[in-house]
Design a protein around this nucleic acid. Structure first.
Length: 560
RNA sequence: GCACCGUUAGCUAAGCUGGAUAUAGCGUCGGUCUACGGAACCGAAGGCCAGGAGUUCGAAUCUCUUACGGUGCACCA
């Protein structure tokens, strides 16, 4: 049940609706003060009474009942305690009944949300700079699905541009079939890095690359065949990582997919009189909006990123009729998104307001920024493998007899990588360090998984009885119950704010509360009349943590 | 120069639409301790919430401003 709502309906303040009161209800800093608090300060002026007096008067008007067990007036706050037995019964029965669906809803029924994330570049290996978009997008995708939305995951492949001319040039000069077949994407990357190194000495290489790219565009069979091969290799390589991270897409329509869909955008811009010539290029002037112009066509007549993105947005609207379209892309591209969103708005697309740039902070190394061209990158595959290895070593040491250690080590190691990327607000920059990712203590996924393993271990020794008494919960139990009851709200606000970190932090909060409970209260040896309840509480905790972690793409081993 | 973002304990961070003594983890020091899994639990030390001004009964939170840091600003994506 909704306690806030229940309480709000019983607070009689003249001229203030239950809805407004509900919004004002807060949670006191210390549970001993109460479960909910109503601050009376802002009514002092209207009612011409002191907040303390208002609280006292309201208190007199609210009788305790089977839900509200106590009302008190303290320093202008009206504090409420709710019946813990009621809280326990309601929360536990709901979680155990709904199971894997606890926290889900039909909030988004009938609505479609497109999510553009990960967007790998062909022939470039996945490095830790791609982790955020992939893992954030993947989590949001699952969260929205969980809330009943029709989510469309789009991997907007970076498969268009002169860099592919460079790649073909490098391959022709220094590569061969065997080399690339054996070395895969890393071999391609080395060719690419070498091209840049040599092009610094010999600028003629750049001309050659441009010529090759032109041939791709013109449909030259040989060049396109090579390019398709590079594309296949990249997707195959990256799929390994997507499998580990539990990432899925419904569409792989990338930049090249839109190469024949840009002309109509250009025509429309021209028709609407938005396109003007400037310094030889075709632009949309955005000075009135405090932005530099959005370049639509270069002076040589070729298209740009913004043009393709607009074509893609229009295509997506037409194809999916989305209610929202999210772009999970680093904040460096902030201006670019503001520009092309504005141009679409100027074109009269009323749905331009539904385009959202979900910006996140950048990842750098302790030595500074990463650069694929210069070759100083940390490959995601290496990071994941190191984490899995470390997990394996620890399992081997702590629990040598564990079955399927490899599988468990994978869940633990991969979980650490995902969790590390999702634990903080997405906008914050991250300095990557192995020490941080490989830390398995404290506020980490490993701590949460360990908590699950403890709960699962208890439950493997005793089942939750079909019916059980609910005693007056102690503080540790009550705190845990309150946290469990919050899960549906947490999922909703994570979706609203596009912040999977809310869920990650929630997991740690629940785990901490469970561990406190676990330490202070015996479960299996509890006296009759308490044991069933504690088993149910344990089962409910495990269920909620499973649900929460699965939204992040993290698995829960039974034992570890 | 202009724009956007950030600045909270030694380090890494929470703090939702302003509300009661600012919250965790790591690290440090001390304790629980022979267990329903110690990858745990408890306690201590550690803070002019970058500086200043304003709005308000009340500001880490809102506004303005300064400083520092990051990012972006015309034919790359």
């Amino acid at each position: 049940m909704d306690y806030k709502r229940y309480i709000a309906e019983r607070i009689p303040v003249e001229g203030v609706s239950a809805n407004e009161i509900c919004d004002l209800l807060a949670v006191p800093p210390d549970p001993s003060m109460g479960d909910y608090a109503f601050p009376c300060f802002r009514f002092a002026k209207i009612l011409r009474k002191s907040p303390v007096a208002i609280a006292e008067e309201l208190k007199a008007k609210i009788p305790a009942d089977e839900v509200i067990s106590e009302v008190s007036a303290v320093n202008g706050y009206l504090n409420f305690k709710v019946s813990k037995v009621g809280l326990a019964e309601g929360t536990l029965s709901r979680i155990l009944k709904e199971g894997a669906n606890y926290g889900s809803s039909d909030l988004g029924a009938g609505k479609t949300i497109c999510l553009d994330y990960s967007s790998v570049n062909i022939a470039k290996p996945f490095h830790i700079g791609h982790l955020s978009t992939t893992v954030l997008g993947g989590a949001l995708y699952r969260i929205f699905k969980y809330l009943g939305y029709n989510a469309v995951g789009i991997n907007h492949l970076g498969d268009y541009g002169t860099q592919f001319g460079k790649l073909i040039s490098a391959y022709r000069r220094w590569g061969n079939r065997e080399l690339v077949e054996q070395g895969g994407i890393r071999a391609l990357n080395e060719l690419y890095v070498r091209f840049h190194r040599e092009a610094e000495e010999d600028p003629a290489l750049d001309d050659e690359a441009r010529a090759y790219f032109k041939r791709i565009e013109e449909g030259d069979a040989e060049c396109n065949e090579l390019f398709e091969w590079f594309k296949r290799l990249t997707l195959k390589d990256v799929q390994k990582i997507y499998d580990l991270l539990d990432i899925h897409f419904d569409s792989y329509a990338g930049e090249s997919f839109y190469s024949d869909k840009m002309q109509s955008v250009i025509d429309e811009l021209r028709e609407k009189g938005l396109l003007v010539e400037s310094r030889g290029a075709q632009i949309v002037d955005l000075e009135a909006y405090g932005m530099p112009p959005c370049i639509i066509l270069k002076s040589d007549g070729s298209s740009l990123y913004a043009t393709r993105d607009m074509a893609a947005a229009i295509y997506r609207k037409k194809t999916y009729d989305f209610d929202k379209c999210l772009y999970v892309v680093a904040y460096q591209q902030n201006l670019h998104f503001r520009q092309f969103f504005k141009v679409l708005e100027l074109m009269g697309k009323e749905w331009a307001k539904d385009l959202v740039h979900v910006a996140y902070g950048m990842v750098s190394l302790e030595e500074g920024a990463m650069s694929t061209r210069k070759g100083n990158v940390v490959f995601l595959e290496d990071v994941i493998n190191k984490c899995i290895e470390k997990a394996y070593r620890i399992i081997d040491e702590k629990n040598p007899s564990l079955e399927n250690k490899e599988k468990v080590a994978e869940q633990v190691g991969v979980g650490a990588v995902i969790f590390g990327a999702l634990y903080n607000n997405k906008i914050k920059d991250i300095t990557f360090s192995y020490d941080k990712v490989l830390n398995f203590e404290g506020e980490t996924s490993v701590y949460v998984q360990y908590t699950c393993a403890r709960a699962a271990s208890v439950l493997s020794r005793a089942e939750v009885p079909a019916s059980y008494e609910v005693p007056q919960p102690c503080d540790e139990e009550a705190e845990l119950l309150k946290a469990l009851a919050e899960f549906p709200d947490t999922v909703r606000s994570a979706a609203e704010k596009y912040e999977p970190s809310y869920i990650a932090r929630y997991c740690v909060d629940v785990a901490q509360k469970f561990n406190k409970f676990y330490f202070d209260c015996k479960i299996l040896q509890a006296e009759e009349g308490v044991r069933g309840f504690r088993l149910a509480l344990t089962a409910a905790t495990l269920q909620v943590l499973r649900n929460a972690l699965s939204l992040l793409g993290i698995g829960v081993p039974e034992k570890m």
